[in-house]
Amino acid sequence: MFLTRFRINTARQGARPLLSSPQRMHAAVMSSFAGALPSDDNASRILWRLDRNARAEVLLFVVSEERPDLTHLVEQAGWPTTSTWQTYEYKTFLDGLTAGSTWAFRLTANPVHNVRRTPDEPLKRTAHRTPRHQMGWLLTHQEQAGFRILETPEERRRLQQGDEHQLTVRDEQRHQFGKTEAGTGRTNRVPLVTVTFDGRLEVTDPVALRRTLTLGLGKAKAYGCGLMTLAQAG
């Protein structure tokens, strides 16, 4: 497994369509792998995420079984003469995860649930709209995903009137794009709501967490969702 980091040059004209469209970015990421197509089975094994850090940098992270070649992205949206990308072996880090260890984490996800508005209506997948429900979505997935989000110390919660868990949700993005049905050829407008979670977790099941880190969490993985990364907890 590989973890790749690429810094996007937002001043480049070629960067703008990528940053505004999850479909275009998905196609660009898939083009980094020889023989891969956006619609094939490999798409489900390649995770990507866009991050914006405190220095106003925009970073693309990719987790994949194969080592990517991002030459086309450097030419389109990078610094061709001064900077490329960094790819790291991920297996050593994954194998080192142990139960009880604590980490800071970041995850961009598509928090959804199935609702039925009338008894006769089929279930429909709908995005959670409020931060409280979006946090609740992640909390319901944590056990199966191999981690436990840490609770906020009672004293700090009382002084700051904070949340029960060390978890924040931010940067909600709403997109709409066309998707063609394979059977009918019809093109439907598909809504996509994404949010970014930051928090602290404890590893409860290293095997399950390794699966989460390499296969993703939740829906819409092709569109920049599901990739969780860990960092040393401060």
Rank of each mutant, 00 (worst) to 15 (best):
F2C: 00
T4L: 07
R5W: 04
N9I: 01
R12Y: 13
Q13H: 11
G14A: 07
G14R: 10
R16D: 10
P17E: 10
L18I: 08
L18D: 03
S21C: 08
H26P: 04
V29E: 12
S31F: 00
S32P: 09
A34H: 12
A34I: 09
L37P: 09
D41C: 09
D41A: 09
L50R: 08
D51T: 06
L60N: 05
E66F: 01
P68E: 12
L73F: 08
G78P: 13
G78S: 07
W79D: 08
P80C: 07
T82Q: 10
T84H: 15
T84I: 15
W85E: 10
T87G: 07
T87I: 02
K91W: 11
K91R: 13
T92F: 06
G100M: 08
W103N: 05
F105W: 10
T108L: 08
V112D: 14
V115H: 12
V115F: 12
R116A: 02
T118I: 10
P119S: 11
E121Q: 13
L123N: 08
L123Y: 14
R129M: 14
R132W: 00
R132D: 15
H133K: 15
Q134W: 05
Q134Y: 06
Q134F: 04
T140S: 15
E143V: 13
Q144I: 08
G146W: 00
F147T: 02
F147H: 06
E151D: 11
T152S: 09
P153G: 06
P153D: 10
E154D: 15
E155N: 13
R158Q: 11
Q160V: 04
Q160A: 13
G162W: 13
D163P: 08
E164S: 07
Q166D: 10
D171W: 01
K179L: 14
E181A: 15
E181N: 14
T187N: 03
T187P: 00
P191S: 02
D198W: 00
G199T: 09
G199N: 01
V203F: 05
T204F: 00
D205R: 00
A208N: 12
R210K: 11
G216F: 01
A220K: 06
A222M: 00
Y223P: 02
Y223I: 02
L227A: 00
L227T: 00
L230E: 04
A231Y: 03
Q232Y: 11
A233M: 08
